[in-house]
Amino acid sequence: MAFLDYFRRQPKSASLAKDRLSVIVARERVGTRSGPNYLPQLQQELLAVLAKYERIDLQQVSVNLDRSGDCDVLELNVYLPAAESVRISPAKPLDN
């Protein structure tokens, strides 16, 4: 019966909640809870520089601030039009 399959294949609502929270909390923490204050500005400026060299679709950009041991690591993922992914990380971890 097709409608039973529909119910079975729906992702459980709790896992949807967790995914949504992970994204929104990480985004809202940039510049507040764990990040330095200049991060939102830095993010905008980096994107502006990239946009000079490539036609970037802003939907295909993700910015993440992670902790790696004692350091904060800013990770910027940009999907270029030719479906190539360029990972840009700072040469040094940010001081914290």
Partner: peptide, 16 residues
């Protein structure tokens, strides 16, 4: 509800 996947678990909230 957590068991049924309808509520965030303790682990989920702690992760976040």
């Amino acid at each position: 509800m957590v068991k049924k996947g309808e509520m965030l678990s303790v682990g989920d909230v702690l992760d976040i």
